[in-house]
């Protein structure tokens, strides 16, 4: 590991000033991903700015009925918060589906959004990787890619975003707030992650030196009946091979409102807007749910060894929507 300077910030503007525009500096929060990547040499910062003591560790009700979640709220505190559990249960379920109890106690909301892909070629510095070393190539396309992207990938990169939390946030129209030396800004979660295109090393639309300060959730009444379901290769403590965040409001036998997002299928959380358009207004039946899944997955471009994900996501979507509909009927 490269030697580095360490600074602890006590307020947001101080943290932003300490980082400055130094491309060699990184913000450190929970460290669960960054410290790991420093050990493997993927990240080689010359300076860390520790932001964990910033006063961003609160979850507060917003005047519009939504929630303001501070960037340094731990994953554990987010999942356990009574308002999150009652108003956005899919978010609690998504967070609890990720990592382990220990890691959730360390990891923060801001860090969770900015965690890096677990593609084995990205994390192995002896291998080419366009995301880590632009222009070096992508061994995944012809190599080990059974858990890689089926949607929105490019010739240069087929990695998936690993976050569970971000999938629920995508479905909930979350807005990411940040601060730079020039002031405050915000980005809808849907626009936080850049399309892969031929620049997979450019992962987010955040300006240089920006510090995520919080995530705002608007009021989402349909989310009161919502669910996150994750499929993985063991029962617990593993990254997804596919996941669905869904909310469903059925009135008079028809879908009145719906939210749907997919995880582990793309380089970012995948808001399934095509499926949502198919659902809203249609009869609340298994046929509708299948049609919605098929409409979204028509854009899928699987690789030789991950075609199973298309079937998996189709069946998972139908199952989760059917379960939500059954609950609504009780």
């Amino acid at each position: 590991m490269r030697e580095f300077d360490y600074r602890r910030a006590s307020d947001v503007s101080g943290a932003v000033a300490l980082l400055g525009d130094d491309p060699d500096a990184r913000y450190l929060a929970g460290g669960t991903n960054l410290v790991d990547l420093m050990k493997s040499g993927v990240e080689r910062p010359g300076r860390l700015v520790d932001v964990r003591e910033l006063p961003l560790d609160r979850i507060e009700s917003a005047p519009d009925g939504g929630l303001r979640i501070g960037a340094t709220v731990t994953n554990s505190d987010l999942a356990a918060h009574p308002d999150v559990r009652s108003r956005y249960p899919m978010l609690t379920q998504a967070v609890l589906a990720g990592a382990s109890g220990q890691l959730r106690n360390m990891a923060t909301v801001g860090g969770n959004l900015l965690q890096r892909t677990r593609c084995a070629y990205f994390t192995d510095t002896t291998k080419p990787c366009n995301r880590r070393a632009p222009g070096s190539g992508c061994p995944a396309r012809s190599g080990e890619h059974h858990n890689h992207a089926i949607l929105g990938a490019s010739e240069t990169c087929v990695a998936v975003h690993p976050s569970d939390m971000a999938v629920a946030l995508a479905a909930l129209d979350a807005v990411v707030h940040y601060e730079t030396a020039d002031g405050q800004g915000e980005l809808p979660l849907d626009q936080l992650y850049l399309p892969v295109a031929d620049t997979p090393h450019r992962e987010t639309a955040l300006p240089t030196g920006a510090l995520i300060t919080g995530v705002f959730l608007p009021p989402v009444p349909v989310a009161a009946r919502s669910r996150y379901r994750k499929v993985r290769e063991r029962a617990s403590y593993a990254f997804a091979i596919g996941s669905v965040a869904a909310a469903l409001d059925i009135r008079d036998g028809a879908v009145h409102d719906a939210r749907l997002a997919f995880g582990a299928v793309a380089s970012r959380p995948w808001r399934a807007r095509t499926a949502e358009r198919t659902l809203i207004g249609a009869p609340a039946t298994a046929e509708t749910y299948a049609a919605a899944a098929a409409a979204e997955l028509a854009a899928a471009r699987p690789l030789p060894h991950n075609g199973y994900k298309v079937t998996l996501m189709h069946n998972l979507t139908v199952a989760v929507l059917s379960e939500l509909a059954e609950e609504a009927a009780l």
Partner: peptide, 23 residues
């Protein structure tokens, strides 16, 4: 881990095995 986990459970934290997570 068990000591920490028992405190989490005593504080009412749900888990991925908890089904309905609403308070």
């Amino acid at each position: 881990s068990a000591i920490g986990m028992l405190a989490e459970h005593a504080a009412g934290w749900p888990s991925a095995a908890s089904g309905d997570v609403r308070p």
